[in-house]
Design a binder for these strands. Structure first.
Lengths: 145, 145
DNA sequence: AATCAGAATGAGAATTGTTTTCAACAGCTA
DNA sequence: TAGCTGTTGAAAACAATTCTCATTCTGATT
């Protein structure tokens, strides 16, 4: 997605929540975009200097509420953030139980469709309204093996 | 699984880690077993009186390392614990984004097998050694709708 | 049974990722 | 420019979790 287009959509999303797309928030989005993988707050602070820690935490909450970014929690010490799927594509996570790193991956369309169908069936049975599904593979990444 | 059998297996798992199956740990397992659903530490403390908070935290770590219990992290404030799958059965979680509650569910065998296959393929491609997969449905539970 | 060494416990202190506070600042509107 | 409102940065506050340490328990050995 082009940067302008992305910025336009984010502006819209934020305005829906009566929030502005400020310089600090732009910097956050730029960082997440440049990384292309889920990153921790310390990583964000390192990668983009000049951002105050409190503002990063606060703005990530704002951006998450607006649906711009997604928060990923693992057993690791830090939460991770990445751009929301609407700005990237539907995907899942490989979580390394050794180093804590999180890597994106996608299922092929057929497997994804089959999974979706099975999940919708289940949800209907128990009266659960589905917002999203999360599929993680936990194990050891190539680096840690 | 019968209580005795369960206790035997847990004793073995703990001994492999040079740990004892003490009274406090038995109480934890009993509580998790009685609940049958993932529970938070506060819930455990409420449900089984007499347990010290520090011991509960400590023992859950020990039990997790031994593979007796599984820790579940969500966006909720508290981590949740349940008996490991080897003592129950393979299952997944419905996570209510409103109240934070976590409910177990299972996929039918066919869907599960298809998912497994797709995941193993992916893992092989990226050189990832799979320990487990986690599948969560995030949404709103029947109570919160 | 008595002893002894190491492990486990309980109460509270310490740690640490995250949230909140609040005074100063920026951006918009008139 | 003046005034209002939302945002920022630094530091304090918060809270789930972990650690400390003195005491108690366990269980192997005599």
């Amino acid at each position: 997605m082009a940067t302008d287009e992305l910025d336009d959509e984010i502006t819209t999303l934020l305005h829906q929540e009566d929030q502005r797309y400020t310089k600090g928030r732009r910097a956050l989005v730029a960082t997440l975009r440049a990384e292309g993988q889920p990153v921790t707050i310390p990583q964000i602070l390192d990668a983009s200097d000049g951002l105050a820690q409190s503002s990063v935490y606060r703005n990530l909450v704002v951006l998450e509420e607006a649906g711009v970014v997604t928060r990923i929690v693992t057993n690791d010490d830090f939460a991770r953030y990445e751009l929301a799927e609407q700005f990237t594509h539907h995907h899942h996570h490989l979580i390394c139980s050794s180093c804590g790193d999180v890597i994106d991956f996608s299922l092929d369309d057929q497997a994804e469709a089959g999974l979706d169908e099975a999940l919708n069936e289940i949800a209907e049975q128990v009266g659960f309204t589905v917002e999203a599904h999360r599929l993680d593979l936990v194990g050891t990444c190539a680096d840690c093996d």
